[in-house]
Amino acid sequence: MIQRAPDIKDFLRIATGQAPLPDQPQALAAFTLWAQQSHILGQVAAVVDAPVGTKLAEILENARLRSSYDQRMLTFETNRIKRALMGADIQPILLKGSAYVAEHLLASIGRRVSDIDILVPEAQLGETERLLGQAGWRAEESTSGAYDQQYYRRWMHELPPLRHVTRRTLIDVHHRLLPRTSRIRPDHLKMMAAARQIEGSDLMVFSPTDRFIHSAIHIFGDGAFETPARSFIELYYLYQDLSDDERQGLLARATDVGAQKPTAEALWMLDEYFDIKAGGARASLVLKSCLRSVTAGQGSGQFLANSVLYVRSHYMRMPLPLLLGHLWKKLLRRV
């Protein structure tokens, strides 16, 4: 039910509080639908004030209630993870949303979160899984089958997802940033070495520069852009939270840790969609045109562009023979 988005850049500006809401009812409805479908209503609600008593005010209030629960849940679960690993000499690094919330970053405000991502040294993977298991996190039902379990453990960058038996919360335990088979191999050990403690807590997070780089790796090196607006807003806010020095050192650090390509693509996106001029922004023609087509939310090119991005995400993740075998399995399971 995708509506034609008149101009994605206008929508992104409104969603990040840089432009007022549209006056025209039709444009307002299109913007709201776009924000709903992009799962960013909570973030919109944090920067937009709707007139009291309107449907928009109700919709935003509803989104605010949901995202504030997500943040409470995340804070609580992070605390439980800390407790589960207590005394084991494992210091997990919080990734993505859980790190943004723990550090009160712009990117966390109103963000919808459904799972918790942590990173531990590969040598401590078994111990981490055992301790989390004792605390109630077991293999998630949808991936608890033998094929998925062995697939994750053999090829992926994380354990199969763990779901808490009573609270139903989901943890992804990573030991690297991209699948073992991935085409780009960011040096997660270097990034882990630069990680630091959150103030007033003994949990760890990446440095601000590495945090942006990791988000770029996740979005441009791994994902299929299912919710591009949400990803772009995340990178926009992460960039906003960097100092000038950190911004300038971004590409050098990215090259240093082997993530030059996704970082340059992320910077291209900031230029393309937010008019942020950051040096070294580069992306391939195919990626550019696919993203433009997908984010325009219209036209017959959509399906093709989405398919290309889907195939690209798998191409980035694994070599062709492995990919063909895996896609065949997934196809058989779907029909």
Partner: peptide, 30 residues
């Protein structure tokens, strides 16, 4: 079209295959 809605619901085939062959339908609440 200009009406703001709380929810969107679409009934659609679970995949392209099931659009034509032994047709199925699934609710998609977005």
């Amino acid at each position: 079209k200009a009406v703001l809605c709380d929810f969107s619901l679409c009934l659609r085939p679970p995949n392209k295959f099931r659009k034509y062959f032994r047709r199925q339908i699934v609710p998609d609440p977005g």
